[in-house]
Every structure is written in C-alpha cells, then in structure tokens.
Design a protein around this nucleic acid. Structure first.
Lengths: 346, 346
DNA sequence: TTGTATGCGTTATCAC
DNA sequence: GTGATAACGCATACAA
C-alpha cells in the first residue's frame, strides 16, 4: 500500500553509483563532476526524492531548526517578530518552532530544556517579565549554542541581542504630548522590574527635563500594565485629586484601560487628557478615539534577530561574536493625543 | 569542553547491562523487572540523561510532532486553537509546529509538503479561503497520516473534522437583532466561496423566516470580510438609500469597519443600527461601542482537534475512523447591539 | 527477564 | 571524482 519513500540508496542503485556519491551530488559537493550532479538531480526528481531531515540531523548533529521563546504568541508584537524570523530562516532552509513561556519563569526553563532536548541549532528568546534567574540561558551558551535575545533582554548574558531604542521611543512620546500642550503628564510603568520599562521611564523623565517641566512622583503609576491596571491607575489619580492632562503609558493595554476609565468619568480624550501608548498593537487603530502609539517594527526586529543568529552560527569556530543592534522606534500619531486640530475646530 | 551528551549506552555501561535493556526500561516495557527499571531511572537521572528524539524518530518512524496549518497565527481565533492543541499534545509528549498559509493556496501546498517532509506524525489544518483543490490533503490521507480539519473544513475529504455550528451561531445572532427591534438586517458574507460563511448565511435566512421578516437581497453584501470591506458595504447601502437598522456581519473585522463608517455618517450604534460580529476576537471588547459577537470557543476546538488526531493515530491499524464534531457557539452580548436598555434611558 | 544483532537514512573519513 | 565503511542514538525481532 504505502509506497516506500525513496532514499539516496534508491537513486544510487538506479544510476549504478554509491549512496555517498548521491549524497555529495545533492549537497553540491565540488568534488563531484557536473555530469554526475546532473543525472543525480534528474533521478532524484524522477523518483520524487525527499531528503530525510531526521536522518540528516542525527548524522550531522545539525537539526536546521531554530527555537523561539516568546511570552505569548497572541500579542501582535511577538507574532510579528516570529514572522520576521521565519522569513529569514526559511530562505536559508531553516525551520522555526515557537514555544510560549506565558511570563512564567518555570515554563521558560521548561521551554529552554524542551528546545535543547529537541536539538535545535539555536534559540531566539524574549524574556518573561518575572524572569530573574538566567541559568537556563547560560546553559545554552555553555553548550556553544547560539542564543539571541530580543526586546526584553538583559545585559547579564553575554550574547547577541536586538532591541528598539526604548528610551528614544518614550522620549518622542513624551515630547509629543508636551507639544500638544500637556503640562502634567502621568506615566504608567513597570520600571522596577523590566529593563525596557526602565528605559521608557528614563525617556519620559528626560523629555520632561529638557522642556522645563518638573517631575512629579505622584504622576507615576507602577503596575503590571494590563488593561485593568490602566483603569486602576486612572482611578487612583482621580480619587487622589491629582490633576493631569496627559498620559504616557508604556503599554498599549494599560493605555486603552485608561482611555475607557477617563471616558466613563466624563473626561474627553484627548481634549481633557491626551493619551499615548507603546507598541502600536493592531487594536490601537480600532479604539475610540484611535490611539497614538510607538511602533517597534517587530518584523524588522525578527529579521535582525535571525541575522544575528546566523552570524553566531557561522562564526562558531572559536570567535564568539556578540552584537547588540538597536532599532529606531517611530511615533504613530492618532486621535487619542491629537489636540491641536481639535482645538481649532471647537 | 563540551561535555558529551549521555546516551543509553553510557547508562548501560555504568550498570553493566546492555543498551537494549536501558531502552526498554526507560520506555517502561513490561518485560523489564521493576528492580532494573528503578536503577536505570536513577542512573539516567544521575547522568542527566536526555533522550535523543531525533534518533528515536529515525529508528521508530514516529517524530512525536503534530503539524498545524493555519491561515494566519495573529488572528486570536487561530492562535487560541493552536493553544488548545498544544495543551493536549504536550500532555501526551507530543510537540506542535505551526505553519501559516496566509490564505495562499500555493503556500498551503508548500506547507503540507514541508510538514510531510519533516516527518510529522499528523496534520491539523484549517483551509485557506481560496483553497479549491484538495490534492495536497489527499496525499496526506493516502500515506495513512492522520489529518484533522477544523473550522474551515470541507466534506470533500474523508477525514475527521471539528467545527462550530455556524448555522446556529448565525441564527442566534440574527434572532438577537430581531429581539432588539431590528426589522431590516443587512448581512455581510462570503458565502459563495467558503463553507462556514454559507452556513452562517443559512442561519441568517432561517432566522428571518422564522420571525416572519422578508428576505431582501439588497441587504446582502458579499466581500472578503476585512475591515475595509465592512466600510465599503455600509457605504454602498447608504449610497443606494437602502434603509437598514441592523447588521449581522459574519466577520468581526468587517463589523468594526461597518461601525466606524456608520459613526462617521452620524448614525448611532446601536440606536440607529445595531451591529453583531462573528468570532469574538479579542478586540471586540475594546471598540466603541464594544461589539456583540459569537464566541467560537477556539481553545476547546483545538483540544477536540487534538483528541480526534490521537483517535486516528491510535486506530491506525486498518480501521479508518473519521468523526465530525460540532461545537456549540455562544452569543456574547455587548453594547453594539444592546438597544432595549438604551431606549428606556433616553 | 535480558542480551545480540541489525537497521532507520544520512554523512564523514578514509581509501583508491 | 568516486567508493567502501562506519557511525549518529535508538528500538526491535529474535535468541537465550
């Protein structure tokens, strides 16, 4: 019933050569004559030969698979990064497998082990928010397996990474709010725990300083940055009677929560409070008002991550090259912060 | 430097048994004594043994990998289905790899080939909108490899599938609009090309009939169901001066496009036009007004798909069992269609 | 209950 | 430029 799959031996037999010759011909080995290569390729085609990657992986020790660890794949940002990696990887005949860590350190450790166990040729990862130990990643490096970190990275690991300039993104966002007339800008952050939020916090502070606006501790709200947290932050500000006319949230999710609560309290967005988020998640264009945010160019980030991976893979002789690439973010202005035109109309 | 990975031979050597014994002990083979199993497991633990799945796959012909083909992973629906599959699969020591077809028939064929080539033990797939030939899927079945279809399926392939009752979902949605007082309900669809939209169309028609509301061809708008298409559909209705007081869109995306255009034209949602979408995508709770939609229980769908896969896998002797599972959808009522309370207030 | 022998399909290392 | 052989790590038919 099941037609047996054709192997290099089948091809070899038909052509009266050996499997080694076929193997070399298929791999375009320079020591094989062009004539032989030609007939081998033709026969392979005729017999509908499909190389067995499993056998190849076993023999060569190279699986041609890259493992990606992301907190969750249903975030637009992460799924776009994965897509970027895939594009580069597939073009070089590499496959990609994705594992989600769900921001759970234990699951992250398990993910690393699962990937190592699956003999991936390398790992591209973004750290979970609660990751504080890096042993599992150090194990990867100890085994000389390429590791590339993206977005949520750490400098405690000596490996390549790609990030956006979170500082610059936050700076741009804050300056934009100032230009729209905001003078009391609240900031939603998680800077004590995650590097990228620390950078965004720094950008916010610096932008205020550069424009002569005093920093006000009371306007900082620390949380886990989900939708509900944004609601709570606004509630707290209102209850405490702290006046504010702008919000820069380091996450789109807490930004939308903030917008909802502001509206429920009869405050206009952006007329009373202008709001800017971070990540340019796909839903930001669907909210009312549509939300200004910072684009992180996730596809490009994935492409760069893949490139860094292959750089490491190919340099793997003894030179350990680690590179940090920083991408430039862009401010996408939408209605949640666009006051100037509104004012001239009303 | 690199410590060589421990194999079953290393364990065997330490214990003065053979590799076969170790292999069997690790697989919990009943022909091995409990005592031997115990020492083998202990030694495996001590030497930090990690089974080499690649070698195992080569030898046994079973990769313990399930391939999933989805149009795009960044749709909440699909990523949730994948998650459901993963949960069941991982609990049975199977891994999952995902390939996106991007609604492109050629990419879908390539995806099937890539998965077969990767020697996956089975494939779980949702068809692309433009898929009209099924040869690539027939090839899977010919090879006796389990295939499970979900959501966007076809009856032209004799294999297991899991769908929601699209007819019922549409029926519920339409009845809900009628109960909210709608009497001229537009329907956005793609029924001529995709089965599930045909079923939703049928549910819409039937609900109207059951409530004595005449069907009006002019209220049907066929399109590709993206956001922009929803905008166009509403534009067309308005331009043609066709009066309508409700919209049942078979997609959340065209529903949000419709809401945007209605609002831009000064029409109230739901006061002038009530809107219901389909899929309960995560953004539906973030729009203004929040959007009523039909939940398809994607995680459950993934779990069932995985279950059907394992059913096929385990029955693979000679009995080909194919089963069709139909899940029940649920109407999630939000503000875009909730008129009754609004009316009593205003 | 355990050991022996063999092969899954490929590739690396010799040899010629 | 090509062939012969072994080996990657594991699983299984057959023997004992």
């Amino acid at each position: 019933m099941k037609p047996k799959k054709t192997t290099i031996h089948d091809i070899a037999e038909k052509l009266n050569v050996t499997a080694s010759t076929v193997s070399r011909a298929l791999k375009n080995n320079p020591r094989i004559s062009e004539a032989t290569k030609k007939v081998v390729l033709e026969m392979a085609d005729e017999l509908n030969y499909q190389p067995n990657h499993i056998a190849s992986a076993l023999r060569s020790g190279k699986s041609h698979v890259i493992g990606i660890i992301v907190p969750r794949i249903n975030r637009a940002f992460f799924s776009s990064v994965v897509r970027g990696v895939e594009e580069v990887a597939n073009s070089l005949d590499y496959r990609v497998v994705v594992i989600q860590s769900y921001e759970d350190p234990e699951k992250e450790v398990a993910a690393v082990n699962a990937l190592l166990n699956a003999r991936v040729d390398g790992i591209i990862a973004s750290l979970g928010k609660n990751t504080e130990s890096f042993e599992h990643y150090e194990n990867i490096l100890k085994k000389d397996i390429p590791l590339v970190l993206f977005d949520r990275t750490t400098n405690k690991l000596n490996t390549s990474q790609v990030v956006i300039d979170d500082y610059l993104g936050a700076y741009k966002a804050t300056v934009h709010l100032i230009e729209q007339g905001c003078r009391s800008i609240a900031h939603f952050t998680n800077y004590k725990r995650v590097n990228i939020y620390k950078e965004r916090y720094r950008g916010y502070v610096e932008a205020l300083k550069d424009h002569g606006i005093p920093f006000n501790e009371a306007l900082i709200c620390e949380s886990n940055m989900q939708l509900e947290d944004g609601r709570i932050c606004v509630d707290n500000l209102l209850q405490a009677n702290i006046s504010f006319d702008g919000i820069f949230s380091a996450s789109d999710y807490s930004a939308i929560g903030a917008i909802q609560t502001l509206k429920e309290n009869g405050l206009g967005v952006p007329s009373d409070v202008a709001v800017v988020g971070f990540s340019n998640d796909s839903f930001t264009s669907l909210t009312e008002p549509s939300m200004t945010s910072i684009d992180q160019f996730p596809i490009e980030m994935g492409e760069v991550a893949a490139q860094l991976f292959f750089d490491m893979l190919n340099a793997e002789k003894n030179t350990i090259i680690t590179k940090k690439t920083v991408l430039q973010p862009e401010l996408i202005i939408r209605n949640s912060s666009l006051r100037l035109q509104e004012k001239s109309v009303s």
